[in-house]
Design a protein around this nucleic acid. Structure first.
Length: 601
RNA sequence: GCCGAUGUAGCUCAGUUGGCAGAGCAACCGCCUUGUAAGCGGUAGGUCAUGGGUUCGAAUCCCAUCAUCGGCUCCA
């Protein structure tokens, strides 16, 4: 459940039991579609907003199968079979699931202890239990509703079909996953479906097209967005805002280009970890260059090139709006939220170990101010820590130091956080800021990371008070993350109706007849003079059509200009809310716009 | 990259069993000179994603490639 503050944990809720039970009912319905032994069961847990079940089936399922499955599910619900629990031994369990390789693998995991029936890590050795209803038995710890009849047939729906790797491992077989959802009441299901519809309406790919902000082209390449003048003015405003704000906070800006010798990434460790996500090398006389996929090694190199540093110079904060290129796999590209050309609002803060906390606080305040301007007021923090295995650099002492520093900085700032193991960067732990948009969807935006590893690998140092050489700590920090992704997120957050300061076109002037165009042009010139972005709609459309167009473009102000306004040296102001504020002087309108810009509405 | 689906005009979409490629909006040209969410008429617009194949004949059937979508995996 997304709202973690709720007193009752999702796992203990009625909703969880309903969904868990619905998953079993669905599994029965699916198994019955195939001959005995043909279909293999994997796992079927409740998740946020619903449940799924993974199957290994002899043929691909299609959405057309959904009707039949749902129909059978309703029947099973109607028959009101009891869910019966049975604790059994591992041997009995194995016998019962003969011919079900995935279940057998899970049982072995349970037998050895350390993982639950979904393969998730577990502290203690669990008992092995089955839940049975009607003819269907599943390896399951429960809990369930008492009987199938407790699942509301009108509050349940199959949502989609997708491929999913067994145990989330791309080297293991790919299974078919059916996503479904269930609620206590039909009303709640309807609300859920409404949210999905609303999200579709707000989809930044759809709105980006409608508002004319960006395009993708097969001639350019996938994952490389092209920004129109309207899209680019937004990028410019967004980057300008962060640049101005972080300058005020004491950050400096640098520029480090687009190409880097591959050798540097061998030294930093990025090559080893991210080779496959870089564009292939450009080779010149045996020297390989790479399109820059991240800034840290470049910034660290710049730090070195600037000469010997005294502790008195620290912290040094290098921020850069750099367009990076990452070879994201084709199936991972999604609109602006996952692209191959991305512009990070990245910063690396070189500091002493004693300065970590202060640097963290500075970054935190900056993040708060920036997110606030974008109306992201509800966010949570994940403390992303190293997992037991994987990509992480093996240097327990440095990890321990970095983690302790990050924890203490979070605590000092009274930031509540959830720990996320196995989510750290290869070089250090992160504090990730996950903001909720108006639909309650979560987006990981900002990040603050503590790095004891790369500075040493790249031989950075400074002269301390003791006149000896020390290795600085580097705080990596991004505020909006990337311009592209953040733009995608705010398009959905605002449903395209951006705050005035951000709107690509802030006002459209609407002359009623041709004789009003000249006066409209005069007003437009005055508004432009005041720094506003305005357009005059001098087409032969009727006024109603002009209003409709501006409304669909979500332009904040519409200025209607006819004979009356022209005579009184005014314009009639209409807001995109539909509110008609009547005729006003152009100065009053400009004042209002400037006030709205200041307030960020 | 993997599983599944989709790809027709700038946009949204229709196109029967294989038989002359369509509509609305947008664009352009006229007429109308307009009072708070679509005025009227006309014109133009297509390598049916791309490349092969089957067929007398392919938007339609088959294969490959590319792209997009829903997920999985990954995300410095």
């Amino acid at each position: 459940m997304s709202d973690r503050k709720q007193a009752e944990k999702y796992e203990d809720s009625e909703l969880y039991r309903i969904r868990h039970s619905a998953a079993h009912i669905m599994a029965q319905a699916v198994m019955e579609m195939f001959e005995p032994g043909e279909a293999k069961l994997a796992i079927g847990p409740p998740i946020d907003n619903g449940f799924y079940y993974d199957f290994d089936l002899p043929r691909p399922l299609t959405p057309e199968d959904f009707k039949a499955i749902e129909k059978r599910m309703r029947q099973i619900i109607k028959e009101d079979h009891q869910f019966q629990k049975q604790v059994i031994s591992a041997d009995e369990a194995k016998k019962a699931f003969e011919g079900q390789p995935y279940k057998l693998e899970l049982i072995e995991g349970l037998e050895e202890g350390g993982v639950d029936e979904y393969g998730e890590p577990l502290d203690e050795k669990p008992e092995i239990s089955f839940y049975t209803h009607d003819s269907f038995t599943d390896l399951c710890r429960g809990p369930h509703v008492p009987s199938t009849g407790k699942v509301n047939p009108d509050a349940m729906k199959l949502m989609s079909i997708a491929g999913a790797y067994w145990r989330g491992d791309e080297n293991k077989p790919q299974l078919q996953r059916i996503y479904g959802t269930a609620f206590a009441t039909a009303d709640e299901l309807e609300q859920h479906i409404w949210r999905i519809e609303e999200a579709k309406k707000r989809d930044h790919r759809k709105l980006g097209k409608e508002l004319g902000l960006f395009h993708f082209s097969e001639d350019i390449g996938s994952g490389i967005p092209l920004f129109t003048p309207k899209g680019e003015i937004m990028r410019h405003i967004m980057e300008d805002f962060v640049r101005e704000t972080q300058t005020r906070y004491g950050y400096d800006h640098v520029w480090t280009g687009h190409l880097v010798k591959e050798d540097l990434y061998h030294k930093s460790g990025h090559y080893e970890n991210y080779r496959d996500s870089m564009f292939p090398p450009m080779v010149d006389d045996n020297i390989s260059y790479r399109l820059k996929p991240m800034n840290c090694p470049s910034h660290m190199t710049l730090y070195k090139e600037m000469g010997l540093h005294s502790y008195r110079e620290l912290p040094m904060r290098f921020a850069e709006f750099a367009t990076l290129y990452r070879y994201e796999k084709t199936g991972e590209l999604t609109g602006l939220t996952r692209v191959r050309a991305l512009t990070q609002d990245d910063c690396h803060s070189f500091c002493t170990p004693e300065q970590i906390e202060e640097e963290f606080t500075l970054a935190l305040n900056l993040i708060r101010e920036v997110l606030d301007r974008y109306h992201f007021t509800d966010y949570r923090v994940d403390l992303s820590l190293k997992g037991d295995e994987g990509k992480y650099v093996d240097d327990p002492e440095k990890w321990q130091k970095a983690e302790a520093a990050l924890r203490s900085a979070l605590d000092k700032n009274k930031v509540e956080y959830t720990e996320a193991y196995g989510e750290a960067a290869f070089y250090g732990p992160k504090a990730d800021f996950i903001a909720k948009d108006v639909l309650g969807r979560e987006w990981q935006l900002s990040t603050i990371q503590v790095d004891f590893i790369q500075p040493e690998r790249l031989d950075l140092n400074y002269i301390g008070e003791d006149n000896a050489e020390h290795t600085p700590v580097v705080i990596h920090r991004a505020v909006t993350g990337t311009t592209e992704r953040f733009l995608g997120v705010i398009i959905e957050h605002f449903a395209g109706a951006f705050p005035v300061w951000l709107a690509p076109v802030q006002a459209v002037l609407i002359p009623i007849a041709d004789r009003h165009i000249e006066y409209a042009d005069q007003l437009a010139a005055q508004m432009k003079e005041a720094g506003l972005r305005v357009e005059v709609n001098d087409s032969s459309d009727r006024m109603g059509a002009k209003i409709r167009n501006a409304q669909n473009q979500k332009v904040p102000y519409m200025l209607v200009i006819g004979d009356r306004e022209m005579e009184a040296n005014q314009a009639a102001l209409r807001l995109r809310s539909g509110e008609d504020l009547g005729a006003q002087s152009i100065d009053a309108i400009i004042n209002r716009a400037q006030q709205d810009i200041k307030e960020g509405v």
